[in-house]
Design a protein around this nucleic acid. Structure first.
Lengths: 332, 332
DNA sequence: CTGAAAGCGCTAACAA
DNA sequence: TTGTTAGCGCTTTCAG
């Protein structure tokens, strides 16, 4: 709990002025190498760390971006954050993560906090991909939406192409020889459920096929997956594959099917969505799944934010492709 | 992307000096109520948000604390963060979350970043409860360790009392009439595995009992739990309950036992550890588990940090009790 | 009750 | 090559 060291103490120890010390430490100006070294050693010796507040007051830059998760931080925000950090870390910028917990009041509070801290830009994320109202109007810093998208088409939003994910899942099932494919997913009103179901239907239609049963909408839970297994089998539909809207649904379905004596993938092949490690690895057999590349989305969002900070804003939606990760549940 | 508004613009609009405007907006000094109101309205009208850098330069306080997760952010860090935010939010302080990803270089980088940002204090967390080397020496701000603990006994560390958790698990199993209890857990060298195993053994010893089999050490995974089921049954030990070192192990064990035709809790009762929602709810039957109250740990850590910031530091380890959450896997 | 002025720590012109 | 100086936007004495 020592008091912090200022640049004037460093300058004094090195026997130079503060201006010279500043140049020496920031590699600016023209200094004798020897002087530069002397200042650097003094800084080292005193454990000097520049006061960011003073610096930003002068330069107008903080080299910090804020990330607001409108829903609670979790499975989606973390990879997004990691991707953003990777893209920003190269430029020595850091990320200030704020959890608005799905509360508009808290969200506006954090927005104010970030603006008062004069962050260079803001990334907004959330648990659902559905479009949301812009977080603010005429903000003094650029904003990029990641995973979630802004309802204002002029805003920059980096989102997963969920229909693409569904397409890859269906194509994969077709490739391993399945034709009678069902789709079990989350709530009918959920944006992701809709996109994925539409993507699946469209892909089959393009091949002159259709889903073996109507889409089974339910919840994003294992319990629903288990229940859906019973429903599916009771319809008597001769299904040889199921594309699920989430890994949790898929895992529940796998259990339900196994309990009913069906072999996976022998009788029925299974594809999930999210590629959530604990689910795909915990499932028996291990679950083929669609990965939305959240890190990539975070990275791209950060890159677009950097572009905007540098005066070259990108507008509109940027849809990024998904990736299929094959595992035992669809092995040939 | 408008330019930010400064207090002098507010002052100009309200027809007062910047000093007066400052007092009006911060509720300090003695001002005519009418003046105060006029300034507040001007600020409102212009959308004024005070520049935190300028303020902190003057006051030396940033009303920000940094939180460094030494391991990657995840299941443990988030509730800790939420708890800390709850405790700090009351005092209008915000939390800057940094993910060091288990990389000492990154950790030191973030430490420097936080110090340069002049945070009022730092909370250090991690994925394991084991003691770690202090993050720095003679830092200019107070530090509190949450969940993880510092190897320096003088540092303030808020940790879960894992032996207490184990005790509650065993007591619960005894209370529902079980006597032949086994323990299946993670790696033998893992601090948490050791604490929990010791807590379980001690509690049984206090009742004149002992574990029905030697502790089964393995991994923190469902796969190990399933494997352990086979091992347990092959020993022929007549076990009527298993206390598991984690929910994942417990879930795997539940599956393995069911596959072998055992009823849960009829033949064998099961208790997990962590109270991780997707595991306890996904398990069949739903899993009784030990909750370490991570939010409470985060809250306490933040309170201790606040105390230290206010000049009343608390030293040493603060162990917090766990909580048992009974579910169907131990229902009578 | 209000204004003027100094200064927090740093950077960036400009002088020397 | 180095030092001097003027702020960045805000708070806070101290006068008035």
């Amino acid at each position: 709990m020592d008091r912090a060291v200022t640049i004037s103490q460093v300058a004094a120890l090195a026997g130079v002025s503060t201006g010279t010390a500043s140049k020496a430490l920031n590699g600016r100006g023209a200094l004798r190498p020897e002087t530069r070294l002397r200042v650097q050693q003094a800084a080292e010796q005193l454990g000097f760390v520049a006061n960011a507040a003073a610096r930003s007051l002068q330069t107008g830059r903080t080299y910090t971006v804020g990330m607001i998760t409108t829903d609670s931080i979790g499975r989606f925000s973390i990879p997004l954050l990691i991707g953003a950090e990777d893209a920003l870390g190269a430029g020595q910028m850091s990320v200030f993560l704020c959890d608005a917990r799905d509360d508009p009041i808290r969200e506006q509070y954090y927005l104010r906090t970030l603006l008062s801290r004069k962050v260079d830009g803001i990334i907004v994320t959330g648990r659902r991909t559905q479009a949301r109202q812009p977080i603010g109007r005429d903000l003094p810093v650029p904003v990029v939406y990641a995973f979630i998208s802004s309802a204002d088409a002029r805003d920059c939003s980096v989102v997963p192409d969920e229909a693409d994910g569904a397409r890859r899942a269906i194509r994969h099932l077709l490739a391993v020889g399945r034709r009678r494919i069902a789709h079990v997913t989350g709530p009918e009103h959920h944006h992701s459920a809709q996109m994925r179901a539409a993507g699946a239907a469209d892909t089959l239609a393009a091949e002159g096929l259709r889903l073996a049963t109507p889409v089974l909408y339910g919840e994003w839970s294992e319990a629903w997956g288990r229940q859906a297994a019973g429903i599916l089998l009771s319809t008597g539909a001769d299904v040889d594959a199921v594309f699920c809207g989430s890994d949790q649904v898929a895992r529940g379905l796998a259990e339900g099917l196994r309990d009913a004596g069906r072999e996976i993938p022998g009788d029925i092949a299974l594809v999930g969505f999210d590629n959530w490690d604990v689910m795909v690895d915990g499932s028996r057999p291990a679950l083929t799944s669609v990965d939305m590349d959240l890190e990539g989305i975070g990275r791209t969002a950060a890159e677009m934010l950097l572009a905007a900070i540098n005066g070259e804003p990108v507008h509109g939606h940027q849809a990024r492709p998904c990736r299929l990760v094959p595992r035992a549940s669809t092995a040939v």
